[in-house]
Amino acid sequence: MREIIKNGVRIDDTFAEAFPMRGTAIIITAPNLKWARQAATTMTGFATSVIGCGVEAGIDSEVAADKTPDGRPGVRVLLLSMSTDMLQTQLVNRAGQCVLTSPGSAVFGDLDSPDRLAIGDSLRYFGDGWQISKKFLDRHFWRIPVMDGEFLCEATTGLTKKAVGGGNLLIMGASFATTMNAAEAAIEAMNGVDGAIMPFPGGVVRSGSKVGSKYSGVPASTNDAYCPTLRGVTKSALDADVGAVLEIVIDGLTESAVADAMRVGLAAIVKLGPKDGALRVGAGNYGGKLGPFHFHLKDLLP
């Protein structure tokens, strides 16, 4: 594998292999940003990977009060899944358990698309007959009486079948501390990209996985080729100077959002340099035969 060196950081000549997903976006508002974020954080908890969570979700961005439908501070949340059915189920379960329950909250669809997913159209039954349907031209809302007043929820939100999941960067550094520096710098830059989320804790995953396992019935297992403690005993992908590896996984509503997030993340890692940051950056793929989206690191370099 030929290497490219940028500001002392070795960039693998490889690509991240990503997959088509179903995605949606909503805006959660509340009387203040603290409670809008609280509802969004609760809703996107336990949503790191479709392998075990059904959906991958995260906060895309904060939305200023003058940009939300109700003039209150808001947070835009993205949810992605492998099938429309699973996305629909997860959206309603999470909105019902985590947002409907959160003080002062309201939910609005935030994706333009002819394909729709129900939110209020399902949650309205909580109203037990006291729910109120409100339409204004092509917008449809449900008002559900709750103990602090009313929960307002848009009837539906848009569904995109062109979402992309599985963009990734493998950040390799000399120690945990320097690798974490690089990962944090990358995440901070990537958080600024609209339409993309990094669903793992704080955006970073330390337990990268490979498909399959020696044990039957286990769909994914540790990525031993990137485990520094196994460098001598397994077919390792790591050089002698690498002491820790962290991965950032990116999901986006479009292919270009994923590419943009990877681009700014890579730029932040390169800018930090190898001494306090990453020695090397790679990406995960399955040989290019499984996923239709290939993000080549060399095309995304600053």
Binding site: A106, L137, L152
Partner: peptide, 14 residues
Amino acid sequence: AHNLVFASVFARLL
């Protein structure tokens, strides 16, 4: 008397 979210949404739409 209440400040209802739907009223502010309609205010902005109208």
